[in-house]
Design a protein around this nucleic acid. Structure first.
Lengths: 206, 206, 206, 206
DNA sequence: AATGAATGAGGCTTCATTCAT
DNA sequence: TATGAATGAAGCCTCATTCAT
């Protein structure tokens, strides 16, 4: 058994996962057959099973790799010191990522994963984990904003974080259903809502 | 002349659709076999094909019937005269519908439809139609609010409507992934955001 | 159970058999579903089973009724006294029946029965019976022609009869496969062959 | 690299087609289920679909391969120089092929194809092609015989060819319906008819 | 490591026939 | 008599996975 370099293994895995993303994002998990992935990856049936134990494992792997993007999106945006600026950056980054058509496939895949999570415990666990991290990051930041007096203390930071993420998810859906969706105008509204929300408290102070 | 009553036909259809919802919401469209639906409906294979031409047609029928709920939700909430009160009602109604565990199945089904729309043109068309109506209703109302001076004229009413709906969709997702999600606290945040948003303009005026 | 007139029963049967011929001649026996026949006959499923026990029985009934035509064709043509004239008439009649497009359906049905006979013993028996009678009629006549010295005694009358019928069957096939087949030119050739055949013997005699 | 040899692929195809012929010739196309063919071929369901796209394609393949035999039969018989001898050979060869019980299955299959052609456009096209070639060969030869003065110029060569083929087809039918059919006596009659037909013209000449 | 032919359970749907009305 | 809804076995085909090479 001619053992192969780690780099080779990594490339093969990527080759398979890329093919899987291509197929899954177009036709969903169940409609995509292993044959589709085999054809797209230009590998053989046997080869794929050398790198993944099953179709489900491919799906799980993709689910696992998926939410990194969102986490990064948020982490990048929270690196600044200024809290208001942070949020502005977050919305901006999110808006730009939606505009990035290269990621369209990944977003579609993400939606399939959201549904898959409802009937696949492993995917569900991964999705939850994938959402908890951003929630934690965001609510931490919001908590700090409260401490700084930028936000009313009556707000539940986690709830606020989740609402923000919900908005993002919902917009991803709408864009996936209608490619012509005007993302820019979304961003304006979202930014305005956040601005209004943030300024509420500051106004309360004399 | 055993031509059966219209009521009987209607009941049978419902029997099938209920079984389908039960199955689909648990296991998604493709993982659910016709045999599952047959067993759940306690009908025979042939009987089902007396009422629906194919599995896909059942899915489409469900997609068609699905978004009525959302439309109703919004229509009910916009019947009042007072605009601010209307929005409060909308959020309240949505919150209550999320709490209503009887509709949990339907919401899970809805999520499956969201993903299905990505690879099923007919479902996509139905989803779009299902979303356009609420958007129209909401943006009309928002437009009126602008005329009344409750909202800045620089806001795109449709974008605002879509953001609101996005939030709802996103929250449906989070609740589906985690039954323990604290819906009440969501509602508080959403309401606060809207309040803040609405009051922005009024503050501008002396 | 309101017993119905014999005429009524007869009409219903004809209604069903006509529908069956229409369907079977177009799509063969197995491709035609009972539903096709039900629709074509404008009766109900139950009604048909009041008159026939099964789909197979309909087929058998049609097979039974089918070969009367051929028998008639031959019987008509053998009524004359002059033997040569008889054969001329037979060919003529056959030629005319092929031209008769109203019977096209029946001829197609006949071909389906020929194939069906290969895997349906009852139909096979009926086909055999349907062929034996013409063979008997024809070979009897040929036998008489031999006695009259019109034909060589070395000819097997039954074989000659069967060859004649084979020709007819083969021509039915060719016409069924190609509607534009030139039947008239067939008739000329067949007639010429028969003429030549018959005159062989007469020539032998000084 | 288990990409299998071309010979292996060819054998598998033959294995499937042989099984199909066995089944189809006994029970016709529609009565034969894929399961029958699978069982008879001793392959798995999936394996068969590796070689043929559908049941219909198997039927079409058989139709395609079928009429070679008839063509060969005629071609072999027309290789001689002497025209009269050619026809004698043709009849002889046909007679022998009918006697050959190993081909009985193929002849039964052929009859099923004749009926199938009436409701399957692809098979119809193949049958037509399968008949046109023999017709062309035969009528060419007959045309040459006319030039040689062996046959009256008033005869349509194609019609004569078609009548000859019709006779063959008709005899195939009769033999299929009754295994005891006396083929030898058929041959005698057919030969006698042809002889008589051919000698007509020569007699006209002084 | 890599191939791709082979497996066979299981998917969707049709259809001849029955039976309550 | 007549209806047509209902049955459920059986039909064709697909697909994730394995294994000899």
């Amino acid at each position: 058994m001619p053992k192969v370099s780690e780099a080779h293994r990594h490339n093969r895995r990527k080759q398979i996962l890329d093919a899987a993303i291509e197929c899954f994002s177009h036709r969903g998990f169940q409609r995509t057959s292993m044959d589709d992935i085999i054809r797209e990856s230009k590998l053989s049936a046997g080869a794929i099973y050398l790198y993944f134990q099953s179709k489900d494992q491919i799906i799980e792997t993709l689910a696992d790799e998926r939410h990194d993007r969102e986490k990064q999106l948020i982490q990048q945006s929270l690196s600044q010191g200024d809290w208001t600026e942070n949020l502005r950056l977050l919305v901006r980054n999110f808006y730009e990522s939606l505009e990035n058509s290269a990621e369209r496939k990944e977003r579609r895949l993400g939606i399939h994963l959201w549904a898959e999570a409802l009937c696949n415990p492993k995917v569900l666990r991964l999705i939850r984990r994938g959402i908890n991290q951003p929630v934690k990051l965001l609510s931490q930041a919001i908590g700090e904003a409260q401490v700084d007096g930028l936000l009313g203390k009556d707000i539940d930071p986690e709830a606020a974080a989740r609402v923000l993420i919900a908005m993002f998810h919902g917009l991803i859906l709408q864009q996936a259903w209608d490619d012509g969706t005007d993302i820019e105008s979304f961003a304006v509204v979202v930014q305005a809502m956040i601005d209004a929300y943030l300024s509420t408290e500051s106004r309360r102070r004399p």
